[in-house]
């Protein structure tokens, strides 16, 4: 009971903070849509490559949704670092707040924002003429997958934030590692245009698994095999990320 109520109280806090910092919020919400518009216009010629299915815009849509899961989950790490360094976490820890709610409230906020950003990307894609072959159920599955992947990333960022207590490390990791993973995956570009080494990297990259599965909701129809691999890879990643985040959290709050 206290877990639910405390999670709710903290969700409210984080959400209010997001809304009160409109620059960050708008940037994060607009960037993926802008990427979708720009890339699909400038690289429209990729539409004829094998595996693209005739429309690079449709091909790119799930990749940009994955981008949302990574961008918003970085906020989880930033927020815990700020709370640690300002003393706010300690101030919460001397209250009766349920310890789990401190993590859960944060994760709920990030997943909520990942879903909002993903919906915006889907709506923008539809407005630009993409049609989802699987319809509304497929879009819901895509959003759920995006939420799960976002949750996993939030746990990764939380673990790094708790371990390093440094906003600089987090933003370096967020814009460096996360973007390398995004761009060296089949989510952004078809395998057929990549050099050999990038194809190898992309074949191991979790972002590729997730975007391949998501793409089947836009192009070609449900590929349950791809979904099985995507959830297996994300699930494994989630187990490691949550174990690391919980370990670091326990070390912090002892």
């Amino acid at each position: 009971m206290s877990l639910m109520l405390d999670t709710g109280a903290l969700f409210r806090r984080y959400f209010t903070k997001l809304v009160r910092n409109p620059t960050l919020l708008v940037t994060n919400l607009v960037t993926p849509v802008a990427f979708l518009a720009l890339f699909s216009q400038m690289l429209g010629k990729l539409s004829v490559f094998p595996g693209v299915g005739g429309s690079f815009l449709a091909y790119l849509t799930p990749g940009i949704v994955v981008m949302c899961s990574v961008m918003f989950s970085a906020q989880a790490g930033m927020s815990i670092v700020n709370d640690l360094n300002s003393g706010f976490l300690q101030k919460m820890l001397v209250t009766q707040v349920n310890r789990g709610a401190i993590l859960l409230g944060r994760l709920c906020t990030d997943v909520f924002m990942v879903v909002i950003a993903s919906i915006l990307v889907v709506l923008a894609a539809i407005a630009m003429g993409v049609s989802f072959v699987t319809g509304v159920p497929g879009i819901l599955l895509l959003l759920a997958t995006s939420a799960f992947f976002g949750l996993t990333w939030a746990a990764i960022f939380l673990a790094i934030g708790l371990k390093t207590r440094s906003a600089e490390t987090l933003s370096a990791f967020g814009s460096g590692v996360a973007f390398i993973l995004l761009f060296l995956s089949s989510g952004m570009f078809p395998k057929s245009i990549m050099p050999g080494w990038a194809q190898t990297f992309s074949a191991w990259n979790p972002v590729s698994y997730v975007s391949n599965a998501m793409r089947s909701t836009v192009l070609g129809g449900y590929d349950w095999g791809a979904f099985a691999s995507a959830y297996a890879v994300t699930g494994a990643l989630a187990v490691v990320a949550f174990a690391a985040a919980l370990y670091q959290f326990r070390k912090t709050v002892h």
Binding site: S2, L5, D6, L10, R13, T16, S86, F88, K91, T95
Partner: peptide, 24 residues
């Protein structure tokens, strides 16, 4: 605590409501 800790994004009332909820 020694350092003054308030949530600068929340209003004064919201700060108090938050801690009231966290204290059940």
């Amino acid at each position: 605590s020694q350092d003054t800790v308030v949530d600068v994004d929340l209003t004064g009332r919201e700060n108090l409501l938050l801690f009231g909820r966290l204290q059940h």
